[in-house]
Amino acid sequence: MQKKILLVGDFGVGKSSLVERYVNDRFSEEYKSTIGVVIQKKTVEVDGQSINLLIWDVAGSREIAEVPASYYLGSSGILYVFDISRPETWAGLPQRLATVREKAKYSSESDRLMVIANKSDLCNAEDLKEVLGQVSVKVDIVTSAKDSLNVDSAFTELARRILTE
């Protein structure tokens, strides 16, 4: 079974790094901003079912409305990524998520849009707690592409939600 999923979010929040960690188990400090979209794939096992994930790593944009609507078409799940260390990447998150839902044509109840707080290695537990309090939406998973924290879980969890919906 093949499923298309998308990673969206602001510039430099670590979307490509999460994919690179997940697919090739690699991490680089170097920042090479994505142009357009890059597609990778990986097979994931969920409850004995194997799903071939086609992962669309979309170029970051401050205005989420800039992402072509057609990129969302036919997607089964979306990871919205922000950077814990940069407040501008999670400012106005509820509005941004609403735009994504609308473009992807997901209902407001659907949990196939997951929110990811990345770069947890850059802050301590207290800072993290404070940020999570401020983002005013439910954060599904806290990750670090650098330390390989929760990266697999994020993708597997999304796959699981896709299967159950």
Binding site: Q2, K4, G36, V37, I39, Q40, K41, N52, L54, W56, P68, A69, S70, Y71, L73
Partner: peptide, 19 residues
Amino acid sequence: DPDLIAGMLTAIKAFVEDA
């Protein structure tokens, strides 16, 4: 890898047709 080519082509197509 045809899966990736198919994806990229669709992205290009989507981008061009969007623009």
